[in-house]
């Protein structure tokens, strides 16, 4: 499955630390190391603009911004440091936003939508009729 998403990883570490992290640890988790650029946000200047710079800690907290091909932010998620992300939810959101974009906004995706499932035809006809076309599922 190819989503065509360019990942950019950003921390306040220098590019030199990024290099050593890749060499010493990441390359032991992922063969060949992680394949995306690792950016240095020295001083948190970029993180401040994105609202993820923690002044007290001097670091960027875990923030993820999904940006569409027009440069518009479609989704964001920000977590405090102790909890790591769930990339499968980001992938699901990318698939959903790409579906919406393919339909030029004519369709929207209901909660928990996955590729291949019916999406919603946006319009006044849908008002009060969502129950007919979509049943919520609760995942444990």
């Amino acid at each position: 499955m190819k989503l065509g998403v360019q990942v950019l990883a950003v921390s306040t570490d220098s590019r030199f630390v990024h290099k050593i992290w890749q060499a010493e640890e990441l390359s032991k988790m992922v063969e060949g190391g992680v394949p995306f650029p690792m950016l240095s946000d020295a001083g948190g200047r970029i993180g401040r603009v994105y609202g993820v710079y923690d002044e007290a800690g001097g670091v960027d907290v875990r923030g993820r911004f999904l940006i569409d091909p027009d440069g518009v932010i479609q989704a964001m998620e920000v977590l405090t440091p102790p909890v790591g992300r769930n990339f499968s939810e980001m992938v699901r959101q990318v698939q959903a936003y790409q579906h919406v974009r393919r339909t030029k906004g004519a369709e929207a995706t209901p909660a928990g939508w996955r590729p291949g499932e019916p999406a919603l035809q946006v319009g006044e006809d849908l008002v009060g009729r969502v129950w007919q076309v979509w049943k919520p599922k609760v995942e444990a």
């Binding site: 989503l3 065509g4 998403v5 360019q6 990942v7 950019l8 990883a9 950003v10 921390s11 220098s14 590019r15 030199f16 990024h18 290099k19 890749q22 995306f36 650029p37 690792m38 950016l39 240095s40 946000d41 020295a42 970029i46 993180g47 994105y50 993820v52 923690d54 800690g57 670091v59 960027d60 907290v61 875990r62 923030g63 993820r64 911004f65 999904l66 940006i67 569409d68 091909p69 027009d70 440069g71 440091p81 992300r85 980001m90 990318v94 936003y97 790409q98």
Partner: peptide, 28 residues
């Protein structure tokens, strides 16, 4: 930003990736 990529150092801009989906991920 300055970046470590493809085994070397380079500067890049977010706008370099216009026309693509981008996942911009900050971490501590």
């Amino acid at each position: 930003a300055t970046a470590f990529m493809n085994g070397g150092f380079n500067n890049l801009k977010l706008s370099d990736f216009g026309g693509k989906w981008v996942a911009l991920c900050f971490y501590p």
